[in-house]
Every structure is written in C-alpha cells, then in structure tokens.
Nucleic acid binder design. Structure first.
Length: 417
RNA sequence: GUGGCUGUAGCUCAGUUGGUUAGAGCGUCGGUUUGUGGUACCGGAUGUCGGGGGUUCAAAUCCCCUCAGCCACCCCA
C-alpha cells in the first residue's frame, strides 16, 4: 500500500509539538485579554477580493502564493494568506467600526504556496493583534509593548532584537519613491537582475535586498528619513521617544520595508540575532488605507503578526509538569471498577488519570512505569471488598490503603506535594 | 520559482572499489513462574535501502526522472 503523506509544507500536529503550539496561544491569549483586547475569529476561506484589494498586486502573495479556487457557486475563494485584511473586513462586515473597543487579537492557520523550509510552511500559524483607531502614535507604541511583553513571557526576548522604521505617510512616501527610482535608474547597471525588475514593480523592496552589489548602491541611495514631511516626522519621533521612555530597546533600520501595500508610517520587526533565512519572528506596522480600501470609513490601524512555528523554533522546551496517575486492577474482572473510579475522580489541574486494562498485573505495572506515572491507584480483590483501594507512590514505592469514598480528597493531598 | 545538499528499521546512524539471507545503538515486544514497576540478564520482530525507470550476470551502492526534507536566494511570519 502506498503511504499517503500530508500535503507538502503542511504538518500534522500532535504530542509535544501540539502542546507547544497550545502553550504559545495560551500565553498570547492571557496577555491580550488582560490588556483589553478581544478575540476575533474570521473564516479560513475568504473572498479573494479581501486580499487582492489590499495587499498590493505586486506582492508575491497576490501574484503567486494564494491558494484559490472557484467554488460551485462561481465565487473566487482563497485560503487566507494573512490575518490583518481579514480582520479589517470583519469589522466592516459586522458594522463594528464604531465599537468602543476596537482592539482585537486572533490566532489560527494561514496559507501561502511557498517553497517550504524550516520556519516556512504552506500552512503555518500566526498569532496577531490589531488596534483600529484614530491615527495616534500611542497605539503604535502599545502594540509594540504587547509584542515585547509577549516575547518576554515566552522567554525568548533576549534572542531577539527590535528593528523599526517609518515608511512615511502617502505623500512623503510618494516623493521618496520618485527620488529613489531616479537615483537607482542612474545606477541601474550596478543592480542585480532581481532588483532591476523591482524597479518597475516595487522599488521600495530593493532596499532590503541581501545582494552585496545591491547593498553598495543602497547605501548611497537617498534615505526615507530625509523625505518625511512634518507630520510623518513628528509621528515617527513620537513613537521613538515613547519607546525610549519605556526603556524598550530598538534600532532604527532605514532599510526595513514592508512587502504589503497597506502599510505606511511605522514598520517594525522582531528578528533573531542569528543570520538565518527565516529570522523574522514578529512583524507589523501601521496601515492607514486598509479599512477604506475595503469600503469602510477612513479609520487607521496598527498591528502585528507572529509565526507560531518560528516562535517554537526559538523556544527552549517548556517544562510541563503533568502528573500521571495510572489506574489499574489486579485482575481483569475488576476492570469495571476502574471505570467506576475514573468516573468518580474529579479533574485536577495538571493531573492525568490513565486507565490500563489489559495484560498481567505485572505488565500493567510496567506500563504504568513507562508512562512515568507519579502514582498508581491499584484495585485489589481483597481491598475492594471493603470499598478500599491501594495508592502507590511510584517514586518511593510506598503503598497505603484508602477509602474509595475519600479518593478525591486523598489524591488532592498527595498531588499537592 | 532558482541553485546546492540529503533520503537505509519507530528514532539516531553504519554499510568498504557494485558481489550471497542489509547491520548497530536506542526504542518496541516477549521471558527470568505466585498481588507490584524501575536495574540487570536472555530472546524475538521489524525494512518494497523515499518512489519509478535504466545500466549490469549482480545495484542501498552507478545513470536518468520524480517526490520529500534541509541550506542559500527569493519572499515573509
């Protein structure tokens, strides 16, 4: 029989891996809830317009990475490649633009048809936040602050640096791009062939090229910071000053740009220090035009998204201290009693009750041991006649007998230490 | 999408210039008799050598194609 595998770039999640996943989401959820964010859960399939109208026709995502299909009703459907545009769409769909609280968080799978590598999958998972509001630098800082806190809670902040830049408002950016293009055209012979193409389609992206020849040209090229108008400049300074006051470490990277069209002004990235390919752990920025480009009112926003798989790559193993308690009976005719006990037991935090039904008694003990049980509840033929069971501490080997009636209270004490 | 590397039991790998029934460690399973695990000892099982085709008397080993993973580019979280 031919073995059927997962689709390229997708993974089954189970066991330890799944647990890490859930842990990241749990930390994220708790943090966001405590800071007044509310969860939003948008569908995995969307009308393709949601992204085509917002991400930019020159972006790789739109050009070649979206999973799309025409459904039986003739509608062009895509598997969502990212979360921000979908959340913005949801606000419009559900008339939430005037809600008092427009801070949202989400997590879930995203889909992009890329060539898979470590930290780059076709189905990957993101957590993210969005703050929709008037354009206000404090929101930019708050979103960065949440990111900062999130990475700290995960224990990976020290592996990661924060880089920040501004793309300026539309006006500033337009002026900058025209000058940049002028300069690059003069030096076109020195550019890589990739960058030559981008000159026509997406000149800003030339700035973060890793090609050495490009880098030389880029160093000499005009800088966005010199093209900011007063408004953009004031906004960026406000963000930076607040970060400084809050003792958030960052460095301004004038070559940091965004791949998606809807971004303007603040752009930031949390990247690992190691010089690897998939080193952006968390990235975001401000988007003024997003909501209106989807037909909503003129409402600005700022937010970020982070790849769960990339976080996990940097995570030291979480220690899960789950205590396993095996429930076994001396003979198989007592298996019904196991079920009785299992049913009687109340759930304890961090405790897993594991019933074992088959094999000789010795086999069951071996199995309990292999499960790394903290203890065993043993149902013995003699003891059960008096409604008693045996408790065995698997670390010390010490055994005692207890009343079945008091099993919850008894175990509560045993588990506590 | 482009280029490079890799692919042998569940896992980590070994496999000599092509040459008999493809190996090790770990894990797994069974045993060392009674209502008690861990250590020790003994024993068993497992592989279409990623898949397909070709060269050859003979292929895990050479050639071609393909798939998957990894690394870089690209892109991005």
């Amino acid at each position: 029989m031919e073995k059927i595998n997962t689709v390229k770039g997708t993974k089954d999640l189970s066991g330890f891996n799944l647990m890490m996943h859930k842990k990241v989401c749990e930390i994220f959820t708790k943090l966001c809830e405590s800071k007044g964010f509310q969860e939003i859960n948008t569908p995995i399939i969307e009308n393709s317009k949601v992204f085509k109208k917002t991400l930019g026709v020159t972006s790789d995502i739109i050009q070649k990475e979206m999973y799309s299909f025409v459904d039986q009703g003739g509608e062009e459907i895509v598997l969502r490649p990212e979360g921000t545009a979908a959340v913005a769409r949801a606000l419009i769909t559900n008339s939430m633009l005037d809600n008092l609280n427009k801070k949202f968080y989400y997590f879930g799978p995203m889909f992009r048809r890329e060539k898979p590598q470590t930290g780059r999958l076709r189905q990957f998972h993101q957590v993210g936040i969005e703050i929709f509001d008037e354009k206000n630098p404090f929101n930019d800082v708050e979103s960065i602050l949440i990111a900062e806190k999130f990475l700290k809670l995960l224990g990976i902040r020290d592996k990661i640096k924060l880089e920040i830049n501004t793309l300026g408002n539309l006006e500033s950016r337009k002026n900058y791009i025209s000058d940049l293009v002028k300069f690059l055209k003069k030096n076109i012979s020195r550019l890589s062939s990739e960058s030559k193409k981008k000159l026509e389609t997406n000149p800003l992206r030339i700035l973060d090229s890793k090609n050495n020849e490009d880098k030389e040209v880029i160093e000499e090229s005009p800088k966005i910071l010199n093209f900011l108008d007063d408004e953009s400049n004031f906004f960026f300074e406000a963000v930076l000053n607040n970060l400084k006051k809050l003792n958030i470490e960052f460095s301004v990277n004038p070559y940091l740009v965004r791949g998606l069209d809807y971004y303007n002004d603040t752009a930031f990235e949390f990247v690992t220090f190691e010089d690897k390919s998939q080193n952006a752990i968390l990235a975001g920025g401000r988007y003024d035009g997003l909501v209106s480009s989807l037909g909503g009112k003129n409402l600005s926003g700022v937010g970020w998204a982070s790849g769960i798989e990339r976080i996990i790559l940097n995570l030291k193993e979480f220690k899960v201290k789950k205590k396993i308690i095996a429930i076994i009976a001396l003979s198989e005719d007592l298996n019904t009693k196991i079920l009785e006990v299992l049913y009687k037991l109340k759930p304890f935090d961090g405790v897993v009750f594991h019933s074992i039904y088959s094999g000789s008694f010795k086999k069951k003990m071996i199995k309990a041991n292999k499960l790394k049980s903290y203890g065993c509840v043993i149902i013995g033929n003699e003891e059960i006649k008096e409604n008693k069971v045996i408790w065995k501490n698997m670390e010390s080997g010490f055994q005692e007998i207890l009343d079945l009636k008091e099993i919850n209270e008894f175990l509560e004490k045993k588990i506590a230490n």
